[in-house]
Design a protein around this nucleic acid. Structure first.
Length: 272
DNA sequence: CCGGACGCCTGTCGGC
DNA sequence: TGCCGACAGGCGTCCG
């Protein structure tokens, strides 16, 4: 489900309502997610006060007055703020009752997501250490991208999904950004000129920024922390548009498979 | 080191 | 109607 724009949408929804609140009660399903639940979960969460909600790649970083919680939504995870009488979602794995009576609910049917607790600084967390630059920050630019891909033989689509090249891009936005930059997903990293990298960086920034403004993309079941869907799927140019006319040249959007995942592109106007 | 395949889960959808 | 396979927004691991 969630790529960078969706996780950022959740973060923006949580931040004003969560910061300053204290955890009064903790309930955990105990069902194993991607990694095992931390030891002493109840003790390490109860009584903690939220002080900051940040995002790195597709991870949510929740800071407490003492300690921190790392959260990843996987493919089907959902973090929502519920009022006291709201019904609880199916497949809920963690429920934090707050001192104002609201509740933070983490649900994840497929259990590809994860939650971890740490007392160390974020930059020391092993899951965050090898992640590349944030695409919306100045450290991500054409020179960085060119250097990261110029010796790589993999298709550029695969490289965009590699979080050590650039953080937070998933299947939807890799496809949309390559379409916008007029670069075929099959192009080898080593074939990209500096100029093509500049176009791609611009396209990534543009697509992600517009997706965040729309509240993310809801294909099936994504919702923000308030339960509302995102509307960026209405602006897709190629994703899940197999057979449709290309909005740029009138060619036919084609679907291929790369690394077992669907890629959509226009063979007529995306440079092979 | 690199690249590709696989597995982890559940839910949904299309074809027969 | 029901069953079965394919597929879905991610990502770490394993093997050649």
């Amino acid at each position: 489900m969630p790529e960078l724009p969706e996780v950022e949408t959740v973060r923006r929804g949580l931040e004003p309502l969560l910061c300053g609140r204290t955890i009064a009660a903790v309930a955990c399903s105990g069902k194993r997610l991607r990694i095992p639940w931390p030891e002493d979960l109840h003790r390490r969460l109860t009584g903690r006060r939220f002080t900051a909600i940040q995002r790195r790649a597709k991870y949510l970083l929740l800071d407490f007055d003492e300690g921190r919680m790392l959260c990843h939504l996987g493919m089907s995870g959902c973090l929502r703020l519920l009022r006291a009488n709201d019904p609880l979602p199916a497949h809920q794995h963690l429920l934090l009752t707050l001192d104002d009576g609201n509740r933070l609910s983490y649900a994840d049917p497929r259990r590809f997501g994860m939650i971890d607790l740490t007392d160390r600084p974020w930059e020391e967390h092993c899951l965050l250490r090898h992640i590349g630059p944030e695409p919306l920050e100045a450290s991500f630019h054409d020179g960085h991208l060119h250097e990261a891909v110029r010796h790589r033989n993999s298709p550029i689509k695969t490289l965009l999904l590699d979080s050590s090249v650039v953080a937070g891009i998933g299947n939807i936005y890799a496809n949309e950004a390559l379409f916008t930059a007029s670069i075929a997903p099959t192009r080898r990293g080593s074939d990209l000129t500096r100029e093509a990298c500049r176009r791609l960086v611009d396209a990534i920034r543009s697509v992600l920024t517009r997706a965040i403004a729309a509240g993310g993309s809801t294909i099936r079941d994504f919702t923000g922390s308030d339960g509302r869907p995102g509307y960026f799927a209405h602006q897709f140019l190629c994703y899940e548009k197999e057979g449709a006319p290309c909005p740029r040249c009138g060619g036919t959007i084609t679907r291929i498979k790369q690394q077992g995942r669907a890629s959509f592109f226009c063979p007529d106007c995306q440079e092979a």
